[in-house]
Design a binder for these strands. Structure first.
Lengths: 200, 200
DNA sequence: AAGGTAAGCGGAGGATTCTCCGTTTACTGC
DNA sequence: GCAGTAAACGGAGAATCCTCCGCTTACCTT
């Protein structure tokens, strides 16, 4: 039953040979281009392999599965956002008080979910844990945990940040927007209320 | 590209012919049995069809896709839980004060997520919105919204209940439990803290 | 109770994802 | 340089999901 076999995360980080690195670049570029051109829905692994000029086996060795590949594309697109909250200007970046940074961070995250919705959705659907394992989730969660622990040192900041990021799961977000017709403003307002309660 | 085509929810509710209803029953029973016997991972639609004694096309006409079928099985298993919070004894059922009911409800939901994790995971992965569209999510969300609006009439209860249910998404829950090693108790405690803040 | 019709049925086949493993290639130590 | 080895490559093929459409059947109307 080859439908899905979650690839075991290999603990050791072998330094990756030169040809392998080159192929990773080619594959990533090809995937990004194909998505740009025809949408995520239409992205097939065979096609990516052909466009990148490698065998399909190579695509799978580098990226494990579809979801991981798509997340890699998302990540590449988000590099600048990540730089912004790590080292950019306040209130997103350092300098502002924690409460303000948390708020700015979550609002920004709502915006990027809105923008990348299609991609995120596709990636989430293909693999149960690519979102957490491969995507930038770990980074976001860590960032939020740190900020929260400053504001509420008594609480389980790690759990709390999971809980605050959870409503941004692509499938829920899409359901709220498309099926229930909630506006982006309403979602942000909902977050504000939540934050007002949680961060005091 | 036939990988996925979300079935359009047909607004009209044609009353379903007798043979169709019978086949639905047979398919559901076969699916439940196969899952029981060999796990969700190994469940193939062709196999379900064969075990139920119908064509594979019939399975798809009745249930649209894998996710919907799996959710139907989950729902069948959860009938009693649903009865418990709708009409059972307090604090889950009516009679207790809203705050206590909310707490009992979420704790119970954590337990059922723990129990049905494999099934929920599989169903979530196959379809982006089967969880919301087909599963009992709507019921849970409605219930929670009602309780919340009693406690916090000023807030956006609908959004808030989405946000409180979001951490129970199977993929996040599994990640917390398996990869990060959080205990069930810790998760419940996290909820308690959240509730203490949100419901005052 | 007979005829008409909308709904249901079945299973072959297209499309896709991912695995497997024999062959090729980049790096290391001498 | 050169040989040895671990890593990477490629693509055929297995497994699966879901669609399509010609045939069949339950239900309603008269």
């Amino acid at each position: 039953m080859p439908r899905k076999t979650l690839p075991v995360a290999d603990g050791g980080q072998a330094p990756e040979r030169a040809d392998a690195a080159e192929n990773r670049r080619k594959i990533l570029a090809a995937a990004a281009e194909l998505i740009e051109a025809r949408g995520v829905e239409a992205l097939s692994m065979d096609e990516v392999a052909r466009a990148a000029g490698v065998g399909v086996g190579t695509v799978y060795r580098r990226f494990g599965d579809r979801a991981t590949l798509v997340y890699a594309v998302v990540d590449a697109r988000e590099r600048d956002f990540q730089a912004a909250f790590l080292g950019g200007p306040a209130p997103l970046g350092p300098g502002a008080e924690p409460r303000a940074r948390i708020r700015a961070f979550l609002h920004a995250l709502v915006d990027r979910t809105e923008e990348q919705l299609e991609l995120l959705l596709m990636a989430e659907m293909d693999s149960a844990d690519a979102r957490f394992k491969e995507g930038s989730y770990a980074l976001y969660q860590q960032h939020l945990t740190l900020l929260l622990s400053e504001v509420r040192p008594d609480a389980d900041a790690a759990y709390l940040s999971d809980a605050l990021l959870a409503p941004l799961a692509a499938n829920l977000y899409r359901y709220q927007r498309r099926t229930r017709g909630m506006s982006v403003a309403r979602i942000k307002k909902g977050y504000d209320d939540l934050l007002a309660q949680v961060t005091g």
